[in-house]
Amino acid sequence: MTRSSLFAGVALAAGLFAATLASAAELTVGFSQIGSESGWRAAETTVSKMEAEKRGIDLKIADAQQKQENQIKAIRSFIAQGVDAIFLAPVVATGWDSVLEEAKDADIPVVLLDRTIDTKDESLYLTAVTSDTVYEGKVAGEWLAKTVGDKQCNIVELQGTVGSSPAINRKKGFDEAIAAHSNLKIIRSQTGDFTRTKGKEVMESFIKAEGGGKTICAVYAHNDDMQIGAIQAIKEAGLKPGTDILMVSIDAVPDIFKAMADGEANATVELTPNMAGPAFDAVMAYKKDGTVPPKWIQTESALYLPDTAKEEYERRKNLGY
């Protein structure tokens, strides 16, 4: 062996060592995402990638196209790859026990994002990061109560898809918040299926049913998309949304900030797409010194008002909503 080749060998070994060190420091996380059925979901994926990058985490995302079997396949493949943690945004609540046991046997912590699962064995997952949809409704209701004060106020409500949990919970939270205020009354409530088209159609009928909209004081929509539809319906009826009728909704998608900046909406409550951030932090702490996070990490439900609408719009418009 010549000197030069020996030197080359050492250099190579050093390089290999450095590479091993780096991968030990950096975590690999597999994320079984439901799909991209809504703008919010797309934003969640984008934000997850950004949060991973910020922390130097290698994030592998598997899009399940709304199918549980795809998610189970993805989890098994993550286990086979030996990832450090698995994030799961479960498409349905049941049927996860056996695959999560496989993860547990492989000693890979699982974090539930955005939705929870039904299981008797809570040890199957490390923690669940979700928003509190009841609380979101409550924030919206409290804002409205405060804004209206003692005035009499007839509210119309655009519900989400009948029977869906966000629709049930956001209604519940809102009802709780206004229960104490006898001057606030929901006079009409219909489903707009979380879509702009239906939101607009339902709002049109509300306006007709309530004397051309003159008796409506506020619109509470379970998501911003329906609210955007409602804003158009109100404008077409010759009224001014945001001025003649107070507009409050939930989600904080970019378009509602645009509407707020134009004075056509009054408030939105954020359903943050950043579920992955807190989840990464929990996993990193757990990996570092075994800190066990609480079983439920609740994301914040911040209220946004027109004063910050412009900046918020700019900040969000590229998140993939």
Partner: peptide, 16 residues
């Protein structure tokens, strides 16, 4: 017409 009506295209829900 559906897109024009809501001033946007909602690939998930339009015409569903």
């Amino acid at each position: 017409i559906a897109a024009s009506d809501i001033r946007g295209a909602d690939a998930n829900n339009a015409g569903l």
